[in-house]
Design a protein around this nucleic acid. Sequence first.
DNA 1: CGCGAGATTT
Length: 739
Amino acid sequence: MNNNLLSLYSKCFGVDNARQFFDEMPHRDVVSWTSVLSAYVKSGNHEQALELFDWMMFSGQYPNEFTLSNVLRSCSALGQFEYGTRIQSHIVKHGFVSNPVLCSALIDMYSKWGFTEEAYKLFAYMENGDTVSWTTMISSFVQARKWGQALRLYIRMIEVGVHPNEFTFVKLLAASCFHGLNYGKLVHGHMIVWGVKLNVVLKTALVDMYSRCQRMEDAIKVSNLTREYDVSLWTTIISGFIQNLKFREAVAAFHRMEVSGIAPNNYVYSSILNACSSIPSLDLGKQIHSRTIIGGLEDDVSVGNALVDMYMKCSDIIDYGLRVFRGINSPNVISWTSLIAGVVENGFDREALRFFMEMQATGVQPHSFTLSSIIRACSRVKSLSQVSELHGYIIRTKADYNIAVGNALVDAYAGLGMIDNSWRVISMMSHRDAITYTSLATRLNQMGYHEMALNVIPHMYNDNVEMDGFSLASFISASAAMASAETGKRLHCHSIKSGLRRWISVSNGLVDLYGKCGCLTDAHRAFQDINEPDAVSWNGLISGLVSNGCISSALSAFDDMRLAGIKPDSVTFLLVIFACSRGRLVDLGLEYFQSMTKVHDIEPQMDHYVRLVDLLGRAGRLEEAMEVIETMPFKPNALIHKTLLGACNIHKNVPLGEDMARRGLKIDPSDPGIYRLLAHLYDNTGRSDLAEKTCQAMTERGLIKNPDKSRMEFKNKVHIFVAGHDENEVLEENRCSYS
DNA sequence: CGCGAGATTT
């Protein structure tokens, strides 16, 4: 009777009242102890459960199988490894191993600790496996992300005649979507064939599967199969829309949920805030923020984390996000990572480093995401010492080192020009992906080492890493810069075979490549292959035409671009003004320059003024060019003086040329080009004595002539043309050995 | 008196 009363108290008045009654009971048996223990476990008081169990053993009461399964659950929840294995030995000693319930509980415990193999050993040892033990083992594989093994175990389950139920299918659906839509549909079909009843948890798993397979319409269809909706299902729907980049629909789903009378919780708010960051919409984000306050969730860590992220992505004022961050009670790794990544993203690299130190001071350990963000910050402030310090820290602390961290290190070292270190990191990584090699190739391109960038290809090939659109675009841009049509053509072939030419960056690269190689027909064809050319595509085409001297075609391409409704950008105007300059169309060029601000709302940059000076100078309007330099809103650089000096050369204006040389050298005394142009000017105006003196001055200052080279490929050889050389150098290209 | 299922944020 007392045991029944105990059960009544725990169900109606809570575990504390039950405990009080238990303490006053004159006689207790194993059922009394287990009732209280199970009440603790059910209410999540695992520490108290284990404490009670200790006391039970101390008082000489033997546990039975019911007691032990409860204790196992607490061990599993608390991560009490020692305690758990002690219970296991107790189970073995007292002959409980044949109990399927206890076996399932043990399998579950080992799985939750991450010991999948040990769990499987226990499972394989079982003789009377039931639906629960099979399902537990399948969950174990799913948790370990071993999707294939999970699905294969299901096949064996059917073979040995154990029936799956709705619990099994929830896990199978989670596994199947990682093998593609066909597997997901197959599992869905099996579910129907087995006649499993569709409850809300199963429906959620189906919605999740379809949305992960980019089938949002099907996901919604499934969710409408029954009328039962709960907050988890809504969360899955909202985040499904977000994953499929349908932000409007995500917000609409959020509203529908509220209208249906289900109150959003922290999961829902985190999801919908993610939509705000992705759009990005500060207004919407602020509205959601106010809702979280009304809903009393402003203190929740995950909502706070999502808010920090939202403010960081929706505004460039880091104080908004920082204010939310400071309001979070006990920030976790994700909070710190959101803050640091956001601060880095907004360009406040030094602040990011300070927050990283603060994070460690508060005892929070960084994980891979934190590390890759902070490494990026260090590489951007060009701090080698900080990058290597972090690298050392990562090795020392055996920090969460994964491919993202490795890639960040590769990129950081390459960005600092330390290519050897990048390769060393690459060789130490357990495996590499396209990002690893792309970031390296991109950095090499930035530094002008295009040949080295192309030599990344064989490494990638030998490593069995497939190119993606980003890597292919980098390699194409390297071969464009080298005017290497042969390599470029191979990459072009690859782009067709792999289907990557659908990437706009790849096809834009091809247009640029053929333009730079002087193959205008191919450039045109590559351009026409693009479904929807963007401004970059048009710029590539125009650039190819201008650099090959087809001025009028370039200008009519510019007209076509506007007719096609593509807005010209600042690069377009650099090209167009340059075209006018080459074509001696001074007034048209001036018109284009003025139209930038007047019509297109593009503020001219320094480079545009350089081109403008070139335009006027070449046409002999030297005073006007001079006036541009003096009235433009930028401080003149050496290049602009050099440009006008070049024009003086053409028009044999010694005084202005001398003036420009003087001004240019004041800014950059180490530029041999200025000396060369000045010497040339003297030569052209019959002052070879002064020309000689200028050359002498240049040599005295230790400046080496390093003339620009022009490359052209012919019969697998790259010919390099250098101004002032009679014999042209022939370079045997070191061909990339991939095919 | 005991075992197996779903959702969020970097």
